[in-house]
Structures are given as structure tokens and as C-alpha cells.
């Protein structure tokens, strides 16, 4: 049950191309969808996600925005209140700091605090993650901040099919959605259905079935988990992998169901371990899944330090296979 939508008629597509296709299809399906971002129109986006969309849709709907994140996201709020469906791109997730008021005080609150007078259907796409030696201000994974804010939805796909399906669902959603794209995935190819459809936000995917322990993860670390699980299968260790896909809301039922099957849980993410997504999942499972646990819940995430620049430092920063294997050994040996 990897992905029920992948039929025999599949092709492979790069993650970035899937996002590009989702944007184009969403714009063709709904005239109210338009794009804003730094260098997204003429240049096609720093990672090429919006390539050629200007040619098809023109400057009216594919808008290069000045380097001014705070007003950009606020303009999106105003346009969304005016009945449009803006999709804005923040070039690196680190730059979301400049748009925090727009996201946290405005977009997240408007529906609630104005007494449900109108939704704020905006999507903020942004790449997170290290691995490019981009250093402390271009590598952070800040998704836990947004998952902490009532009113925001947070999504983080791990493959091309999910990237398409979740982005379509995000654009269709009446709420503000922070759509997180791991920048190491943009060029990664994976299976893509012939007739891709939106994927329901809030539903996890079982990326691998297993019986000995569960790794809950999302985004690029799904692939790390798969790689390690494959290696450990040779030692007769059968690992189940839950790809969350959505972080707010997250699929508590899927995680609990898997835990009830394997009785051991690791939460893996590239973001800082302390006070992170893993902390929330571990706390909930220690509460509602206490009777199912045969071992402590272990988190594997980034150490409590900024993402370093040097190739040597970033390699050790992790999370990597060695750290994940250490956690597996702690649970099973």
C-alpha cells in the first residue's frame, strides 16, 4: 500500500517538476490562483519550480516580487481576503522570519478572530534543509514553529507524487498552508501517476511495512529511513516507516496504529531535535500509546546548534545513517 494512486501507468518525475506541474494544473483549474515570489517569473525560480509558468500565464498571474518578504506575504493575505488564491514562494525557509507577522498574527488569526467572516486561502511554498553547504541562514528546518500556531496548516512531502497531490490539496484548502519542500529533493526522481489527484492533508502514508519497530518521519529523511531499513532487513530487522506528509494536522491514528503493531518508535527529522515535531509526536504517543510501548521513544534529529557550513561539519551534523542505526540498536539490541 505504498501509494494507492500509482497504477501501472506511471512515469518517473523529478520532485521539482511535480511541483511545477501542480502549480500549472492549479492555475488552469482556477483563475483565482496566482503566484508571487522572488525571481519566480522571469528566472523561473531559484530551484526552477516555476519554470515556464510566466510564458503560459503571463505577468498578471506569475509575479516577480521585490526582495521584501514581509509585505509579500501580507499582500497575499489581503488578496486572499479579496477572493484570490495566492501561492507565494519564500526562497529559503530561513527567510520566513521576515514574514512572521503576516503568517502568525495575520494569516493564522483572521478566520478565527474576525468570527469566520472569510477564509484566508493562501499557500506559502518554501524550501528547507541542509546538505548544500549553504550555512546557518540558508539551511534551517523551521516547520515546528508553524505547526505550533493554531490556524496554520503545515505540509512536507517526500516524493514527486506526494508533492503534486499535496500541493494541489494545499491550493484547494481554504486555510493558510505552509508547504515545505526539502531542497535536496528537487532533482530527485520518483514514480508519478498518469492521472495525479490531490492528496488529503492530514493523512500519513506507510512508506514501508514492517513489524519490529516504527520510524515516523517526513520529507527527505523518509529516504534515509528507507535506506537504513533496507540495510537492516538483511539482519532480519523489519522496520515500518510512516511518512507523515502533513505535520499540522498530523496523522495521530496512523502513528498509533503502527506503534500498536511494532511497539517501538523512533521519530526522525532533519530539524533540530529539541522542542521539535518529534517532541510532540513522542509526547502524544507516550500518552495515548503508553500501553503499546515496549521501549522508550527515541528522537533522531539535528543537534542543538546552527547548521554549519563546512562539508566535514555538515556531514556530522546529520541526521545520518549512523545516528539512525544507533537509535535502532538501542531499541532492539
Amino acid at each position: 500500500m505504498n501509494n494507492p494512486q500509482i497504477s501501472e501507468e506511471t512515469e518517473t518525475l523529478r520532485f521539482g517538476q511535480a511541483l511545477n506541474r501542480a502549480l500549472g494544473d492549479a492555475m488552469r483549474a482556477d483563475d483565482r490562483v496566482f503566484l508571487m515570489g522572488e525571481d519566480i517569473a522571469l528566472a523561473g525560480g531559484p530551484f526552477g519550480v516555476t519554470r515556464k509558468l510566466l510564458d503560459e500565464f503571463g505577468q498578471r498571474r506569475v509575479r516577480d516580487y521585490p526582495i521584501a518578504e514581509a509585505s509579500m506575504v501580507n499582500l497575499a493575505v489581503g488578496a486572499a481576503l479579496g477572493g484570490y488564491k495566492p501561492v507565494v514562494e519564500i526562497m529559503f525557509m530561513d527567510f520566513c522570519t521576515l514574514a512572521m507577522d503576516a503568517l502568525v498574527n495575520q494569516a493564522a488569526k483572521a478566520h478565527f478572530m474576525f468570527g469566520e467572516q472569510g477564509p484566508v486561502p493562501l499557500v506559502l511554498r518554501t524550501p528547507h534543509g541542509g546538505g548544500l553547504n549553504a550555512g546557518p541562514q540558508h539551511s534551517q528546518c523551521l516547520e515546528a514553529w508553524f505547526a505550533h500556531i493554531p490556524g496554520l496548516i503545515v505540509v512536507c512531502p517526500s516524493n514527486a507524487a506526494d508533492a503534486y497531490g499535496l500541493l494541489r490539496a494545499a491550493i484547494d484548502n481554504p486555510n493558510p498552508v505552509v508547504f515545505v519542500e526539502n531542497k535536496r529533493l528537487y532533482s530527485a526522481k520518483s514514480e508519478f501517476p498518469a492521472n495525479p489527484q490531490p492528496i488529503e492533508i492530514g493523512k500519513a502514508r506507510t512508506a514501508r511495512s514492517g513489524s519490529d519497530l516504527t520510524i515516523v518521519t517526513y520529507g527527505n529523511t523518509v529516504h534515509l529511513a528507507e535506506q537504513v531499513a533496507k540495510q537492516r532487513a538483511d539482519q532480519n530487522i523489519d522496520i515500518e516507516i510512516i511518512d507523515l506528509r502533513s505535520l499540522q494536522p498530523w496523522d495521530e491514528t496512523a502513528v498509533l496504529t503502527s506503534l500498536s503493531k511494532t511497539h517501538r518508535l523512533i521519530v526522525l527529522h532533519e530539524a533540530t531535535e529539541a522542542f521539535g515535531i518529534g517532541a510532540e509526536i513522542a509526547a502524544r504517543m507516550a500518552d495515548i500509546g503508553f500501553d503499546e510501548l515496549d521501549a522508550p521513544i527515541i528522537r533522531v534529529g539535528a543537534p542543538f546548534m546552527p547548521v554549519p557550513y563546512s562539508v566535514a561539519l555538515e556531514a556530522e551534523f546529520g541526521p545520518n545513517a549512523e545516528q539512525l542505526n544507533t537509535a535502532i540498536d538501542r531499541l532492539l539490541l
Binding site: 501580507n74 488578496a79 507577522d101
Partner: peptide, 22 residues
């Protein structure tokens, strides 16, 4: 909407102006 954030409403109104333009 009113705004508890000083200047918070200004760019939102500009976004509304963008909607008006569209």
C-alpha cells in the same frame, strides 16, 4: 479588519488593492 499590530493592516490593504486591480 482592525489590527493589533501597528502598521499590520497596511500591506494587507495593499494586497486588497491588488485584488481590486485583478
Amino acid at each position: 479588519g482592525a489590527n493589533g499590530i501597528v502598521a499590520g493592516g497596511i500591506p494587507i490593504a495593499v494586497g486588497s488593492a491588488l485584488a481590486h486591480q485583478l
